[in-house]
């Protein structure tokens, strides 16, 4: 589905990603965890084409995508739900969702797209109540739901989620991870999840990569990483023992 080989990302003088390789197989939920500034977001932005890598390759469905502009990667089935939600605050909730299906409108009828909207509403019933409201007036948690819903509108083959828990209250975070697990259960979408909350992410993921200073420090089965003391060390600066 998605593969990254020896990716190096730099902007300005910062080398944010220093040679990362990873793979997301069909139907898999892969987590990338790591502290702030470890290069997670830069990696994702490079995968969806918002920044160009200094070196290395990005493959989407086995196609080398380095030269493909970001908006065309969306047509290849890649949906990216960006950090800090980035909903279109001045447009309605419904319009935000429809924009998520922008590339589908070229081939499919609007009625199909409205069907998907209804599906999203069953996942996030709160959005249905507020569909005509300006998105900027939603609470943080609702905005995050909208951002995920908007990404799902594409019916993506691969879904990238960048820190869905950021700035949310613990109860809402629980809800968010339930939704992620449910998407995973459908088996139609593979997910690349970036999280700061390592243990939460590891609990839902199949496999995971631990990023530190732009490098993969650990990788493997998520359940195994969950009990690996090195993960905690990477976060809290305590020596592993």
């Amino acid at each position: 589905m998605l593969e990254v080989k020896n990716l190096v990302v730099a902007y300005g003088g910062i080398v944010a990603v220093r040679g990362v390789s990873l793979i997301v197989n069909p139907g898999e939920l892969v987590a990338i965890i790591g502290a702030n500034g470890s290069g997670k977001t830069s990696l994702l932005r490079c995968i969806s084409g918002l920044i160009t890598p200094r070196s290395g390759e990005v493959y989407i469905n086995q196609t080398l995508a380095n030269e493909i502009p970001s908006h065309k990667r969306v047509s290849m089935g890649l949906a990216h739900c960006p950090e800090a939600r980035k909903i279109f605050a001045q447009q309605s909730v419904l319009d935000n969702l429809i924009l998520g299906a922008f590339v589908r409108t070229k081939k499919e009828k609007m009625s199909k797209i409205h069907e998907t909207v209804e599906e999203i509403f069953t996942i996030f019933p709160k959005l249905k109540e507020r569909q005509l409201q300006q998105a900027g007036t939603l609470s943080g948690g609702e905005q995050q739901m909208l951002a995920i819903g908007r990404a799902l509108m594409l019916k993506p083959q691969t879904l990238i989620l960048d820190e869905p828990s950021m700035g949310l209250a613990p109860v809402i975070i629980d809800e968010m991870f339930n939704v992620i697990e449910n998407i995973k259960k459908t088996k139609t979408t593979s997910i690349l999840l970036v999280e700061q909350l390592a243990y939460r992410a590891l609990k839902v993921a199949d496999r995971a990569y631990v990023l530190e200073q732009g490098l993969v420090r650990l990788e493997g089965n998520a359940k195994e990483l969950l009990i690996n003391p090195e993960v905690k060390a990477a976060y809290l600066g305590v020596n592993a023992h």
Binding site: S165, I173, E195, Q196, L197, A198, Y199, R200, A201, L226, I227, N228, P229, V231, K232, Y235, L236, G237, V238
Partner: peptide, 19 residues
């Protein structure tokens, strides 16, 4: 501070089985 459970929770999302 390093051993404070609230801190660990805020940073890692839960206490973590390994700790």
């Amino acid at each position: 501070v390093q051993k404070n459970t609230l801190v660990i929770q805020a940073y890692l999302g839960s206490e973590g089985e390994g700790a």
